[in-house]
């Protein structure tokens, strides 16, 4: 387990990365809604394929909880495009490609030796603060249960906070 990953309560470092050759996505674009940052080692690898396919399948559930998933790996935009088309993905994959792994480093989830990111999840709230994070053993697909519990916890927390309105 990587102990340097950013922890809940930390402001999520903003970033701008390419989603396609001519389109960039910034974390700050998502202000006002929850974001699930999904760092994964590589497009096409069997574990990642399952993990990304699972999140794609449960997109409606993420959206019901006010969250958008965003995949991040060190793969380049053309690789992401091919992978995304092959798996019919409906959420963006961002290329942490140049300088390589820069965003992963800032979140404390870069693996120097392998030159890839950890298999790490961050739930960021609408104010840009990390509310939940999890680093999975790199060969183990973490599933979605932890993410959904975190999002539900935030939702019920928000309801309690807003009860006086």
């Amino acid at each position: 387990m990587n102990s340097s990953a950013l922890t809940p309560g930390t402001p999520a470092p903003d970033f701008t990365l390419h989603a396609t050759p001519d389109q960039t996505v910034s974390l700050s674009d998502f202000r006002g809604q929850n974001v699930v940052l999904v760092f994964y080692p590589a497009d096409w690898s069997p574990v990642c394929g399952d993990q990304i396919a699972l999140y794609n399948q449960i997109l409606p559930e993420f959206r019901r909880l006010g969250a958008e998933p965003v995949g991040i790996s060190v793969d380049g935009v053309w690789c992401h495009r091919a992978f995304s088309e092959n798996r019919h993905l409906h959420f963006p994959l961002l290329a942490d490609f140049e300088p390589k792994g820069e965003v992963a480093r800032r979140y404390g989830v870069y693996r120097e030796k392998e030159g890839t990111t950890e298999r790490a999840l961050f739930v960021v709230d609408g104010e840009g603060v990390i509310r939940w994070s999890y680093v999975s053993p790199v060969g183990v697909n973490p599933g979605a249960d932890g993410i959904l519990e975190a999002l539900e916890g935030m939702q019920s927390g928000a309801q309690t906070a807003g009860a006086g309105r």
Binding site: D50, A53, L54, I58, E61, V140, G143, A144, D145, G146
Partner: peptide
């Protein structure tokens, strides 16, 4: 959905 809740991560 029970699978998603239970931590199913692929098939």
């Amino acid at each position: 959905m029970s699978g998603v809740r239970s931590g199913v991560n692929g098939t």
